[in-house]
C-alpha cells in the first residue's frame, strides 16, 4: 500500500511517499514558512516525479504536532481533504515521535525538543527498543528551565534533537551536559516509515477522528465580566 506523508508542524514543509518498498520520494523545504503556498504543489511534484496517481494512494499520514499552529492547520486540512476525497484512511503521528525515530540507533535517551515560541519548548523522552523507539517521558510544554530540570532528574546520557534544542542550545548545555545534534525538523520520510508499520496492523482512523496535539496551557474563560461595555 502506498502512503502519502504530510509534515508541516514546524518551519519545514515536507511531503513523502512510500510503502512496503520503503520511502520512494521526498520533498522538503525548511525556509520561507509558506506552508499554505508550498504544500499542494509539493504533493503534485512528488506524485509526478514518482509516477504515482493520487488514486494509487491507500492511506494519508500526517504530523499532528505539537508545533506551529499555522503550519499544523495547513497540513491537517490538506491531509483530511485528500483522505476524504479519495475515501482512504488516515494515520496521525506526533512530531516528537518523528524527531526521535531517526535516532533509534543510539543507546542514549533521545529528547526531541520543538520550539513552542515565547521561550517555551515542547519535549518528550524516548529510548531505544528493537525496531524503533519507545516514549519514556510524556510530551510536555514548558520553559527551557523545566526541560533542563527534567534532564537533570533523569541524569542519563541524552541526545537532544529538534529546532527547540537548536535554538536554545546554550541554555540547555549550561544546565545539563548532553549532545545536541541530529534532525532539526521532523521528516516526512520518518512519517511514512512509522505510518507503514501502523498501516500493516491496520491502526488507522477516519479523517474526522484526526485531532491536532496543541499541548498548550489549559483553556480558560476570558473574563469579559470586567468589561462594562460588553452587552
Amino acid at each position: 500500500m502506498l502512503i502519502l506523508g504530510i509534515e508541516s508542524a514546524t518551519q519545514q514543509v515536507g511531503v513523502s511517499i512510500g510503502g512496503h518498498e520503503g520511502v520512494i520520494a521526498t520533498f522538503e523545504v525548511a525556509r520561507g514558512r509558506r506552508h499554505a503556498e508550498i504544500l499542494a504543489p509539493a504533493i503534485q511534484f512528488v506524485c509526478r516525479q514518482a509516477d504515482i496517481e493520487l488514486t494509487d494512494l491507500g492511506c494519508i499520514a500526517v504530523d499532528v504536532g505539537p508545533g506551529l499552529f499555522t503550519g499544523m492547520r495547513v497540513g491537517l486540512a490538506a491531509a483530511k481533504a485528500l483522505a476524504q476525497a479519495l475515501k482512504i484512511p488516515m494515520i496521525g503521528i506526533s512530531s516528537l515521535d518523528l524527531l526521535a525515530f531517526p535516532c533509534r540507533h543510539t543507546d542514549r535517551v533521545v529528547v526531541p525538543v520543538i520550539d513552542a515560541r515565547k521561550g517555551e519548548v515542547f519535549w518528550a523522552m524516548y529510548r531505544q527498543v528493537p525496531g524503533g523507539v519507545q516514549q519514556v517521558g510524556a510530551p510536555t510544554v514548558g520553559p527551557i528551565d523545566d526541560l533542563v530540570a527534567d534532564l537533570l532528574a533523569r541524569s542519563q546520557d541524552a541526545l537532544c534533537v529538534g529546532d527547540g534544542a537548536d535554538r536554545y542550545r546554550d541554555e540547555i548545555l549550561d544546565g545539563f551536559h548532553c549532545e545536541i545534534s541530529g534532525p532539526v525538523h521532523p521528516s516526512p520520510a520518518a512519517l511514512v516509515q512509522l505510518a507503514h508499520s501502523r498501516a500493516l496492523r491496520e491502526e488507522w482512523v477516519r479523517p474526522g477522528e484526526i485531532e491536532p496535539i496543541y499541548l498548550r496551557a489549559p483553556d480558560a474563560q476570558i473574563n469579559w465580566a470586567t468589561r462594562e461595555s460588553r452587552p
Partner: peptide
Amino acid sequence: LDSTGDVDQLALPELAEFGGIVLVEWGDVV
C-alpha cells in the same frame, strides 16, 4: 471569543513572526 484557547488557536504571535505586524482589538484581556 470566549476562551483563551480560542485566542491561542488564532496563533497571532505566529502571524507576527512570519512577516507580519498584528493589531489586536480587545487584546488586553489576554
